[in-house]
């Protein structure tokens, strides 16, 4: 079974969202997603300053045999990205919820956070998939 931390939020396209103390969000892909993709060899993250529309494909992760888009779970502006991934895409495999975070977002509308799935909701998505 894949790991689904209780303190995070999720979307059905397999991104996780972590609410920071300052109201910004960290975003990455779930343990389930990294497991399904296999060993990742390349990660392309959005540029800092880019304003994302919700559900927009804004990043790409590649394994040897697959390439997958990563979607913006919420609208907002990219304020930081995880530079370490360029040289070490394997962080997404080894620590998807920690060192493998992808970008930091300032949400356009903080109330959108309430629309996200909680851990139990995401677990249900995986069960029924």
């Amino acid at each position: 079974m894949s790991n689904i931390p209780a303190d995070l939020k999720y979307v059905t396209s397999h991104e996780w969202i972590k609410l920071q103390a300052d109201g910004t969000l960290l975003i990455g892909i779930t343990d389930h997603a990294q497991g399904a993709l296999g060993d990742l060899v390349f990660v392309d993250v959005p540029k800092v300053g880019r304003v994302l529309v919700a559900h927009e494909a804004c990043a790409v992760v590649e394994s040897v045999k697959a390439a997958s888009d990563v979607y913006a779970p919420l609208a907002g502006e990219v304020i930081a990205v995880n530079e370490a991934l360029a040289g070490a895409p394997e962080l997404l495999n080894s620590d998807p919820y920690g060192a493998g975070w992808m970008w930091q977002l300032r949400p356009a509308n903080p109330a959108d956070i309430d629309t996200l799935l909680d851990a139990a909701g995401y677990a249900k998505v995986l069960e029924t998939a």
Binding site: V41, V64, K65, A66, A67
Partner: peptide
Amino acid sequence: LQAREQHIRRSK
């Protein structure tokens, strides 16, 4: 680097 190619990336 096969993930660039049509058999994986298809329309992209």
